[in-house]
């Protein structure tokens, strides 16, 4: 599995835990608010867990760009210097 795919699956596990769904229920493009009833508190928790896991800092303003798993990967990748998805 390519590095990008591994990171995506790690993020899927992490985000699924925050949203309290099974990882296999979390699609790449499903909107967190519309499809998984996420609120701002879950968004903040998700951001904090990503920062802690990958030892990076992501400004809160990026939350507006992190509305689904694919978008979360793109933003995280840019701050963690991962390969683009």
């Amino acid at each position: 599995m390519a590095d990008g795919d591994l990171y995506l699956e790690e993020l899927r596990e992490l985000v699924a835990e925050v949203l309290e769904v099974e990882p296999e229920e979390l699609t790449d493009t499903g909107d967190f608010q519309a499809e998984y009833e996420a609120d701002s508190l879950r968004a903040i928790e998700m951001l904090a867990r990503i920062e802690k896991k990958y030892k990076i800092a992501i400004p809160q303003k990026e939350l507006a760009n992190m509305q689904n798993l694919k978008a979360v990967y793109e933003v995280t990748a840019s701050y963690a210097n991962w390969p683009k998805g």
Binding site: I44, L47, A48, R49, E51, A57, Q60
Partner: peptide
């Protein structure tokens, strides 16, 4: 303290 960031603390 578990984590602190720009806008939150856990």
């Amino acid at each position: 303290l578990e984590h602190r960031s720009e806008g939150a603390a856990f």
